[in-house]
Write a protein that binds this DNA or RNA. Sequence first.
DNA 1: CTTACCATGTAAGGCGTTACATGATTCA
DNA 2: TGAATCATGTAACGCCTTACATGGTAAG
Lengths: 182, 182
Amino acid sequence: MANEKKMDCVILGLLCHEELTGYEIKKRINTALKFFWSASYGSIYPALNDLVNRGLATKREDTGNKRNKLIYTITDEGRNYLKEWLALPVEKDELRYETLLKLFFGNEQGAEQTISHIDVFEEKTRKELQYLLEAEKSLKDCLSDDGAHKYYLLTVEFGIKTYDAYLEWCKEAKKLLMDNGE
Amino acid sequence: MANEKKMDCVILGLLCHEELTGYEIKKRINTALKFFWSASYGSIYPALNDLVNRGLATKREDTGNKRNKLIYTITDEGRNYLKEWLALPVEKDELRYETLLKLFFGNEQGAEQTISHIDVFEEKTRKELQYLLEAEKSLKDCLSDDGAHKYYLLTVEFGIKTYDAYLEWCKEAKKLLMDNGE
DNA sequence: CTTACCATGTAAGGCGTTACATGATTCA
DNA sequence: TGAATCATGTAACGCCTTACATGGTAAG
C-alpha cells in the first residue's frame, strides 16, 4: 500500500457509491469531478480491467439491456483498498494554469492581449460557476437522501468559493491593466 | 506553430526577462511560479538543449565564475516564438486536486478523517498565503522598476484571492462536518 | 436516414517525474 | 570536515491523452 494510482482510487470511489459502466464513470468524472479532476477512456477502460484482475472490482454483462454494457461492482477488497488510500495523507495537489503563465509573461505581449486572455478565462469561469450553483441547489434539496451528498456539496462549495474569487480577481486585474494602459 | 510544449514556453518566458542557467530556471519556477506551475530538472535540461538546437536560445559557458555554469540567452527567434504562443488562446488549465478527491469520497471515511485532511490543506494554504503576501509587498515596492513586475503582481494577487477563498471554505467546511457529526 | 449519443476498447506517442550519477563550492 | 547548496545531466519508467477502430440505438 504505497503507490496508489489515482485513477484506481477515483474509479473505486465512484463504484463505492453505485455500480457503473466505464462509460458512466467517464460521465461522472466529466460532470461531478469536472472542475478538479479529469480522465479519458484511454485510462479508464484499462484501469477497470486491472481492478478486476486485482480482485478490487468485478465485471458482469448487462443482460437486461440491448446494449453491450459491462457493469462494474466494487468488492470488499476494493472497499478496503479505497479506505486505506483515503486514510493516507494527501500527496499533492497539482495545478497547471496556462492562463496564469500567459499572464505572468504579459509584459511581452502588452495589456490588450493580456486582457483578452482574462476575458476568456472570466467567461469560462462564469459558465462553470453557473453550473456549480445549479448543482449546489439540487444537492441541498436532497441532502438527507444520502450521506454522500454532504461531501459532494462540500466540493461544490469549494468550487463556488474559488470561482467567485476568480471573478473578483478578473475584475480587478482588468482594471489595473486598463488604468496603466492610459 | 501548432503544438508548443509548455515547458519551452515557460523557459523562453523566463529567459525573455534575463539570462539564466538551468539551475536558476528551476529556482524561478519553484518560487515565482510555484503555486500554479512546476517542473523538474529532468525536463528542464533536455528542453534547454532542445531550444538551442532549434535556434530559440543560445548557450555559453560562464568564464568569470569558478563553477561550471551554462548560461542561456533567448534569441530573436525565441522572442518571436514566445510572442506567437502568447497570442494564441489558452488551451487548457489543468488541475488535479487530490484533496478534493478525498473530500468527495468523504462518506467512505467519515467526518473526522475528512476534517484532518482539511486541516492539512488549511495549514499548507496558510503558509503559502504568507509567502504570497510577502511577495506582494516587495513587488509593490518596486513596481516602477520594471514593466514586468505589474504582471508578476497580477499573478500574486490571483494566488492571494484564491487562497483567501480556500481558507474561508476550510472554516465553513469543518463547521458543517462538525455540526453533522454530533 | 442521419445525427447524436451509448458503449468498449487499443496503440502510439508525448510529456514528465523519480532516481541515479557526478562533482564543485561555501559556510559553520 | 561535513552539510547545504550550486550545478548539470541521463535513463528508466509511469501515466495519460490522442487518435483510431468498431458498432449499436434513439430520436428527429
